[in-house]
Each structure stands twice: as C-alpha cells, then as structure tokens.
Nucleic acid binder design. Structure first.
Lengths: 264, 264
DNA sequence: TGATTATTGTATATGTTTGACACAATAAAA
DNA sequence: TTTTATTGTGTCAAACATATACAATAATCA
C-alpha cells in the first residue's frame, strides 16, 4: 500500500467543515487516442480499487464550479467542455462500514494517527452525487492523482476495471448521455488535434456510436455541412493516395451545433 | 394571509432531523387541456407568491422516491411517468434573510408561537435541488396544497406568474428537456384521454413544440408508424366530416419509444 | 521504368422521406 | 339542395439515404 501523507489528510480534515455535508460531484473525463475512447480513472492507494475523479462541494460554491475544480485539479485544464448529465441519489450510496474500502481506509488513517475518526466518518456518509462529463484533448491533459490515489490514468472505455460503489453505472450513464447528445456536443474540436483526416473524424464517431459508418457517405455528409477547412495533403508514407488534412471552422461549427448537427 | 396550522408546522419541525440537510427535489408536473400545456403550481399562504411543488429527501430515501412522493402528495397519482432532468446547485439557491418570503415566513411562525427558529433556519438554508418532470392526465389528478400553500392549481405554460427563487429557470429547463427528449417520452398516452382524434394528437405536439405542423403530413407519418388503433368516428356536431377516434397500441408504441420515435 | 497495391475523393443509381398542395368525402347548417 | 368546414387520402418534386462504382494517386516492387 502506498503512503498517504499525514499533512494532506490534515488539510482535508480542516476543509470538511466547509463542504456541504451530503453532496459530491463526479466527473467522467473522456479523451480519445489510438482510435479508442478513453476515460480518466483514479486508483486508490489503500486497496488498488478504481474510481472516477470526484470531489466535494464547498458551502459557498456552485456545483458547476466544483466540477470545474475537480477537472482542473486532475488534468490541469481550464475552459473545457463540461456538462452535467445526471444526479445519483440512491439511499445506499455510501461506503458500507464493513466494506474492504472502508476497513482499509480505517487502517490507513489509524497508521497516520487519526484516531478521531472525522475523516473516516465523512467517507462513510451517504452522498448524493452529480455526474458531469468532460471532453478533453489527451495531449494537453496532465493527469494528477489526489491524496488518496497513487495512479491517475486513461483507460479504454472498452476495458474498464471494476469500479467502487456505483461508478460503473455513472460511467455508463455518461456514455449513454453522450450518444444521445451527440449532435449537440463539440466532439471533434474537443477530442481531435487541430488538423485531422476524414478518417480520423469517422473513426471517432464510430468509437462513440460503437458501429461502423459508410466511408463515402460519411465524407459527403460532413463536407456538405460545410464546417471544415481543407488543408494540404498528409503524406502518410503508405502505398496509396494521401488524404487531405482538415480543421474546424470554429464559428460555423458552433452555429450549427447550437441547432444540432444531423447525424444518426 | 391564510392560516398556517400550528400542528402541521410542529409535524414538519419534528421531521427536519430525518431530512438530508442540503438537498431537495422539485417537480415540474405537466398536464394538457384545452389545447394548452399546463403545469401544476402552488401558491404560498404567506405572500401569494407561486412555486413548483417540491419537497425534501429523507436520509433513508432514494431521491427518485422523494420525487414520486411529492408527486403523489400533490396529485394523488402513482405510477406516473417521472424523469429526472437537471440538478440546480448555484450557491445562492437560498431564501435571502431579507427577502419578502423570508420576512413573511418569520412573521407567520412568530404568530404560531415558533420562537425557536428551527423551521425558519431550515427554509433559509442553501439547497441543491434536483428537478423532475412528470406527465399526468389532468382528469385523474387531484391537486392538494401543502401546509404552506393555500392553492394548488394548473397554470397555462404560456402564462406563468412570477415564481420564487430560480423556479422559473427550473420550469424552462424542464420544457427544454421535454422538447429534446420528445421522441423518447410517452407523451400521448400520458397526456391524452384513452380515445382521441388525430387533431388532438397534432395539437398536443404543436403545443409542446410551439410551432404549427402540416396536417396531412402529420397524419401520414403517424399512421405509417403504426402504433394507433382506429375506432369509430366521432360525430362532433359540426358541419363537416367527422374524424376517426384513435387509441395507442400500448406494446407497439413503447417498443418504438425505446428506440426513439422520429418526429420534428 | 512500369505494373501493382491500398486508400481516397467523387460520382451515380436507386429507393425512401419530406413538404406543399390538391381534392374528393362528409356531417351538419343554411 | 346548396353551402360550409374539416377530414382522409393522393400526388409531385425536392431532399436525403444507401449501396456501389471508379478514377486518382502515393508508394512498393518486379
């Protein structure tokens, strides 16, 4: 088990008074690389179990701001597309006092000399949590674990390890929401590099919709919508015709988005 | 100002310990009559200001159940279509201690002899509220005010009186959500009587979309989807051809709904 | 050097959906 | 019997979707 710094726990303990007592936020931070949709996960020091990055809401803080703060703390990124999608409020949303997580946390805290179980009690409470999803450019993000975690890394959406509590359900709901709101969300500009090929864009949509799209019809439809600039060709080194590079016409794209871009 | 019953306030005061301290639910309960979309509102006894029906969440209660409880308490209805749509968590979501609402509540409570301001403090706190929207058959609902309200009645969505706090914003968001999810929501079966004419169905969609639809194309499209039974004609008494009555093929309709019915 | 290869950009052919409008059928009133 | 307003259905052109064809082309290889 990795070390939990005593000072960080103390800091957290001091903040507890300033948090709303029964509400949290969890962020489903999505990225895209190697034709795979990725989600940022944390691994706890105590027991190696995985969870979504989340946090608590200060008494004097908007919940939207709390979500932005979590996003910023875990990725270093500001001004990112971030949308609330659902609030999870089952009465059993709490670490059971007999669960592995809780017992290991107890052990860790005892080792650090926190016999007054203020922090422990906090983590054992019921929290209603509001889920947010963010779309970020993996290349710009700098994943940072929090004080309870040793690892903060991107995981393939198709290969998610077991998650604590109902975090799996939260993730699934985020993906469902993303598919539903596909035509209202700045997918490409958030997840792709500045310049990309038509194939890149198609693979992105295929990864999210989880089904193949017809190449030539995809190309025709996208070009007709008219939100792409065409640039120089990209010499791939492969023995075939080189594809053009494209970039988004930012204003045109966002104008279209606000009305919903028609895909499937 | 109408009378607030001392015993009801006492009951509420006793329940306060059992509520989560910073979370509430608000319900946008929609009905349909006279070709108008309606929403159920409460009018406070203290100052005649209007609000959405809402309530608090018991420490041992799912938030979804809390919303169902509010719906049941205000309409007498169970097993109704009810969906969460958004959580409102601005840090200023609290009655200001200098607001009319709060001053009048103070006055009322003082008259009733509640000098220990437990109830007052409660209503002055910040609440994060989760919004739910319900679709109900107006004919079956029996509106009941709560102990702080004298009136519980249907208001035209096109003529909403000023509402407390951010309830106007909550209502707008609910309507926006409804329009967005139009193709996934059992509009007709929830809001229309068992048998109805094609015009009834069209007017309902027009009321929600807030724009006219072309009659003959609407009819063609609906009939092609094949989720309606055709019944006898309805003799309207008007000097023209009588329309058929229709009803929903429940299974067929819900099968289609789960994939999303294509309109707009 | 010229044939070979895989991929790209564009075109076409066919079927389906949409939106605007035409029109006959019809229940009741004039 | 004529008039009226509304309903159910038909039609026509435009837009769109789907499948497929095919030439252009960057690099490889015989």
């Amino acid at each position: 088990m990795d070390n939990i710094p005593h000072s960080k726990v103390k800091d957290f303990e001091n903040q507890i008074e300033d948090f709303l007592p029964n509400h949290s936020v969890d962020c489903v931070i999505l990225g895209y690389a190697n034709q795979q949709l990725k989600v940022l996960l944390l691994q706890w020091k105590m027991n190696r179990s995985w969870c979504l990055p989340g946090g608590f809401v200060f008494k004097n803080e908007d919940i939207d701001d709390a979500a932005h703060r979590v996003l910023q703390e875990r990725t270093g990124l500001n001004e990112i597309f971030l949308n609330q999608f659902h609030t999870f409020g089952r009465r059993d949303r709490a670490a059971s006092p007999t669960s592995d997580e809780y017992l290991l946390l107890t052990e860790s805290m005892n080792k650090l000399g926190f016999t007054e179980p203020k922090v422990l009690k906090w983590f054992n409470k019921r929290f209603i949590t509001t889920g947010y999803f963010a779309l970020v450019d993996i290349a710009r993000a700098q994943p940072q674990p929090d004080f309870l975690s040793s690892v903060c890394e991107w995981k393939d959406v198709g290969a998610i390890p077991p998650l604590i509590l109902d975090h799996r359900e939260i993730l699934e709901k985020a993906l469902e929401h993303l598919r539903l709101r596909l035509n209202y969300v700045p997918l490409g500009p958030s997840l792709l590099p500045k310049k990309f090929t038509m194939q890149d864009l198609q693979k992105l949509y295929e990864a999210i919709l989880n089904k193949p799209l017809e190449r030539s019809n995809f190309q025709r439809k996208i070009l007709k919508l008219g939100f792409l600039n065409r640039h120089e060709k990209q010499m791939t080194g492969a023995a075939n015709k080189a594809p053009y590079l494209y970039s988004f016409k930012s204003k045109k794209y966002h104008d279209l988005l606000s009305g919903g871009i028609g895909f499937l």
